[in-house]
């Protein structure tokens, strides 16, 4: 496992002003892992994901991508980001492009692929998420679940090594949550390396290979889904999970 390490995060901290949101985070992501990050609102889950693909600049620490510290000034963030896909809660599809263009533009402008190649690739991933019939639609003409599936296809079209999801189903109607989760499940089964911030405990339990529970800016507990959901060690984890059961 250890020689398949993609990402290694060491002593990562992030301050917003005087507010320390991430405190000395350490963790490793290996090829093929599906990591769910759970935790209360405000515990720093989104901030951690955003630090990983440099949408936020960490205050201190290192992020090693195949051994290279991407926080080094010599590393160009765009190039690194093209290897690390991100799916957002609010989709963030490009409103000025149709579905097909959304999935092509990164390939042509960032990866320098030809139009034909980009289109073929885009169609492949759009059909994987069941959206190939909608290539001519503009984002505003789609439902939330459809938008999110296109967003996943857009991220996949870049053929990233690792895919980050920040609460991909939180903005969806209950009926459409399932369609996005099943796409993600299929993706996980295909061997894609994923980090998923989620409040969908069933997903975390059934799909992920590892679960990280965050509390107040630190990784409070991590382990297999069986360990975290079946036999949590920390009081905070137990309290969080029981609160969750209470809600659901």
């Amino acid at each position: 496992m250890s020689d398949n390490v993609i990402l290694k995060v060491e002593h990562l901290s992030k301050d917003f002003g005087s507010n320390r949101v991430l405190k000395d985070i350490d963790f490793t992501v290996s090829q093929g892992e599906v990591i769910s990050i759970i935790g209360a609102s405000g515990s720093g889950k989104s901030t951690l994901l955003r630090c990983i693909n440099l949408l936020e600049t960490p205050t201190s620490g290192v992020i090693l991508y195949h051994g290279t510290n991407i926080l080094d000034r010599k590393v160009k963030p765009p190039k690194y980001r093209s290897k690390v896909g991100m799916v957002f809660q609010s989709f963030n599809l490009f409103n000025n492009m149709n579905v097909l263009k959304n999935c092509m533009v990164g390939q042509t402008t960032v990866l320098g692929k030809s139009k034909e190649e980009a289109k073929e690739n885009a169609l492949k991933y759009l059909s994987n998420v069941g959206m190939d019939a909608y290539i001519k639609a503009k984002p505003k003409q789609l439902s939330g679940g459809q938008k999110q599936r296109v967003a996943i296809a857009r991220a996949l079209s870049m053929e990233p090594e690792i895919l980050l999801f920040d609460e991909p189903t939180s903005a969806l109607d209950p009926e459409t949550v399932g369609e996005v989760l099943s796409v993600m499940k299929t993706l996980a089964e295909s061997g894609m390396t994923m980090i998923v911030v989620t409040h969908e405990m069933a997903f975390a339990k059934d799909v992920s290979t590892r679960v990280i529970y965050m509390n107040d800016g630190i990784i409070c507990e991590e382990g297999t889904p069986e360990q975290i959901f079946g036999d949590p060690q920390k009081g905070e984890t137990k309290a969080f999970l029981s609160r969750f059961r209470g809600v659901n």
Binding site: N53, L55, P77, P78, K79, Y80, R81, S82, K83, G85, M86, F88, F91, N92, L93, F94, V105, G106, T109, V110, L111, A151, R154, A155, M158
Partner: peptide, 9 residues
């Protein structure tokens, strides 16, 4: 952010 996330400068 959507554009940055797929590697656009």
């Amino acid at each position: 952010e959507g554009a940055m996330a797929i590697g656009m400068n």
